[in-house]
Amino acid sequence: MTRIDDTFARLKSEGKKAFVAYVMAGDPDFDTSLEIVKSLPGAGVDIIELGAPFTDPMADGPTIQLAGQRALEAGMTMGRTLEMVRAFRAGNTTTPIVLMGYYNPIYSRGVDTFLAEAKEAGVDGLIVVDLPPEEDDELCIPAQKAGLNFIRLATPTTDEKRLPKVLQNTSGFVYYVSITGITGSAEAQAGDVGPEVARIKAQTDLPVIVGFGIKTPDGARNIASVADGAVVGSAIVAQIAEGKSASDVTAFVKSLADGAHSA
């Protein structure tokens, strides 16, 4: 049982859906970013998705691309991202952290070294968007052996033939991408998402969390009502990009979390 498993078990016992918040590590700078991350559990965030900045984030739209650029320009590295996790863990040992990003920074660090460091820092799971199931031996299997959940993305184009392959070595939860496209683009619609979530849940006992295209408390509520929870990223990152204070960002996150939890 990981912290992610424990969190979903607790939420299920409380009859609540999960709210997952994404922020880019180091955006706009290390100290502000850490302050925001530390505030997330108090705002109602059940799981934190921490973006690891990378120079070529091909699955991300402009909002998160720019956040990554700001973080890199502020001196953020994979080492400093793990340092941020350690600093968070000094005051919080229960809220799961999922590191979301791309394989290159992990590969260049060395898989075994990275996994040992991530586990020691307090990372609970990984979402690596550019490693398909055919590459599971590369990182997914070693990560699971190291005690980290490896969370896979399913999309509207993941058909019945492909879905079992996607689910094969997934753990923690399944991240359903509600729209075809990049982060921060079209708005997710519960009417479209519900049948897709049901299709995935027919093939796995894992929770199915829906992200991409959720921008408002109502959106979070509507999507959480047809899934096991909702993820919001670009809308939060946009607040940071506007220069909002950590407390203002936290208040916005709380409104989203309240929406998801009211589903």
Rank of each mutant, 00 (worst) to 15 (best):
S225Q: 13
D124N: 15
L50V: 03
A235T: 10
V174G: 07
V193I: 11
G101R: 07
A260V: 14
G110P: 07
L167M: 13
S247C: 00
D137F: 04
V45H: 08
S178N: 12
N104F: 00
V128C: 14
F114M: 08
L167Y: 13
E35P: 00
G26M: 04
P164M: 05
V249I: 15
T93D: 15
D27C: 06
L72G: 05
A74N: 08
Q69W: 02
G184K: 10
I48W: 07
L163F: 04
I36D: 11
S33G: 15
L256E: 14
V111Y: 01
K244I: 06
G194D: 10
L99G: 04
L139H: 08
G79T: 08
G219W: 11
P132H: 04
R162V: 02
D218N: 15
E135L: 11
A251Y: 06
A118S: 04
M84H: 03
A87Y: 05
D192I: 04
Q168K: 15
G219F: 13
L167Q: 15
T216A: 10
I182E: 15
M84S: 09
G75C: 02
G51Q: 10
L50I: 04
T63H: 04
E49R: 11
S234G: 10
E73I: 00
T32I: 07
V197D: 05
L148M: 04
E138A: 09
L148E: 01
F8P: 08
R70T: 01
M76T: 09
A257N: 14
V111T: 12
R70F: 01
V237N: 14
I236K: 12
I151V: 13
F114Y: 14
P207M: 08
S39L: 11
V208K: 07
Q144N: 13
A71Y: 06
A251L: 13
V129C: 11
I151L: 11
Q203V: 05
T32C: 02
Q239P: 08
L34F: 10
A87D: 14
D218T: 14
D258Y: 07
V226N: 12
M78T: 12
G26D: 11
L256S: 14
D112Y: 00
N169Q: 11
K161H: 12
L256A: 14
R109K: 10
A227V: 07
S185C: 03
T81R: 03
G172S: 10
K145Y: 02
R3C: 05
L163G: 07
A241C: 08
S245C: 13
E120Q: 14
K38T: 13
M84K: 03
